[in-house]
Design a protein around this nucleic acid. Structure first.
Length: 419
RNA sequence: GGGGGAGUGUCCCGAGCGGCAAAGGGGGCGGACUGUAAAUCCGCUGGCUGACGCCUUCGUAGGUUCGAGUCCUACCUCCCCCA
């Protein structure tokens, strides 16, 4: 068990599991979290229809906030998404339509119920939306009440702005206002819920600190900031991107099986770190897994995959994904939750070309891609290597399980099911 | 308002004497080696085709030319300098 210098459960847990990058006034926050129930929030902009693995880190901080006896607020950026955060972006964000933002919010909200107990579930968690206050602001009033507290000189010095200017990239006035709106969110959440803590990824530090300043100036409130390091794998790649795109948290975008696979393929050097960050296993249990080396570390990876999947998709789906992986990789059989694509039986009786089959299964984008894969020895039907692109798949290829197993390489499998 | 520069394969960055499906990276995918790891090495990374070949692609729209990413014109977007 890693020790930390903190006395409050909340900061102690976050520190020992490796979440903390920066904290403003750590002693004061520690004392407050020890003596009282605090309220903290994280904002999520609705720029995509689902959150992804990259967002998971900060969601886990909200989780631990609640688990250690405090109150989490998940703030949906229904208002701020209409403006667009310039942090970490070289170019102007595409302006999303209000309809798109609304739809994205629906997809994003669903995830939080897995991690936080909201009021309807008997918990104290709060789901807020900054559109509720931002959309009604009166421009002149806002400038007089809030804008007067911001110094443009200082705003220009913030990284999110400075980097753009230095690189001579355009920064619109719209985006320039983002940090003011985010700062105002913090103040508004303090008014409404007594919120004293804003957390986020490290690139949010500047925006969060702005909120702290604004809170002191407008309400004479003492607010706090806590950030996590931006997450990369040990080899330096950004988290959450694969060939197919981002690793989304919503099951309709990335199935539990694929999600499990994502974690299963974690690099050795990341396993312990990820167990601490992305599972809720006790630290002494993680220490036990950390003792595994070489090939044995695969056991730790399976635990990581199953625990991480259980958090997002539920225990049952995680166990099923684990069972499917076992059947597919260790027993050479078929797993029930492998991705399955249905097709009319008539297509099969007529004889379906490998090219068409793999395109239909979504394993390749074009016939040419399948051809190249065949040339690379990467195409298998029912675990038999295909050497000719003229190969046809017919009724005789349907196994006793009623499916045809298509594989691209050793890892990517899809079942073709005639109906 | 005047002058100068830039926009390249829809993942990104980037080279490109008028013959270019377009150099080179990164990233990704596959193969070998392994442990569904990392590192390393090899291959692939516009569409259709068995193949010859055909089609689509270099900000947009026209033009010159046997032939244009490459030259000309207009337009759009961005950057810099001057006012």
């Amino acid at each position: 068990m890693t020790m930390s210098a903190y006395k409050s459960d909340f900061l102690n847990v976050l520190a020992s599991r490796g979440f903390i990058h920066q904290v403003s006034e750590p002693e004061a926050l520690d004392a407050l979290a020890r003596s009282s129930r605090i309220t903290g929030y994280i904002g999520f902009d609705a720029t995509a229809p689902s959150l992804h693995v990259g967002n998971l880190l900060v969601i886990m901080m909200l989780y631990w906030l609640q688990q250690t006896g405090h109150r989490p607020i998940a703030l949906m950026g229904g208002g701020t998404t209409r403006v667009g955060d310039p942090s970490g972006k070289d170019e102007i964000r595409k302006i999303l339509t209000d309809e798109a933002i609304g739809q994205n919010l629906v997809g994003i909200r669903a995830v939080f119920a897995k991690f936080l107990k909201f009021e309807e579930a008997g918990g104290n968690g709060v789901m807020a939306n900054n559109a509720d206050w931002l959309n009604q602001l009166n421009y002149i009033d806002f400038l007089r009440d809030v804008g007067r507290h911001f110094s443009v000189n200082r705003m220009l010095a913030f990284d999110s702005v400075k980097l753009r200017l230095e690189r001579q990239q355009e920064l619109s006035f719209l985006e320039f206002n983002y940090m003011i709106l985010q700062a105002y969110d913090f103040v508004e959440l303090h008014r409404r819920y007594g919120c004293v803590l804003q957390m986020g990824a490290s690139d949010q530090w500047g925006n969060i600190v702005n909120g702290i300043d604004l809170g002191r100036r407008m309400l004479n409130a003492q607010l706090f900031a806590l950030t996590t390091a931006l997450l990369t794998t040990s080899s330096g790649a950004k988290m959450g991107k694969t060939a197919a795109g981002a690793v989304w948290l919503n099951a309709d975008l990335v199935s539990p099986y694929e999600y499990w696979q994502y974690w299963r393929n974690t690099e050795d050097a990341d396993v312990v770190r990820f167990l601490k960050l992305f599972t809720v296993l006790p630290l002494d249990e993680i220490d036990r897994l950390a003792a595994l080396h070489d090939a044995e570390i695969n056991e730790a990876k399976k635990v990581l995959a199953t625990e991480a999947t259980a958090l997002v998709h539920g225990r049952a789906a995680a166990e099923q994904a684990a069972a499917t992986a076992r059947a597919t990789f260790e027993e050479g059989g078929l797993g029930s939750s492998l991705p399955t694509v249905e097709l009319p039986r008539a297509d099969l009786t007529a004889g379906l070309s490998v090219l068409a089959a793999f395109v239909k299964a979504g394993l390749a984008a074009s016939n040419g891609e399948v051809r190249r894969a065949i040339a690379n020895n990467a195409i298998l039907i029912n675990d038999e290597r295909v050497t000719s692109e003229k190969t046809l798949i017919g009724e005789s290829d349907v196994t006793a399980d009623g499916v045809v197993k298509l594989s691209l390489g050793r890892k990517r499998h899809v079942l073709l099911k005639p109906i």
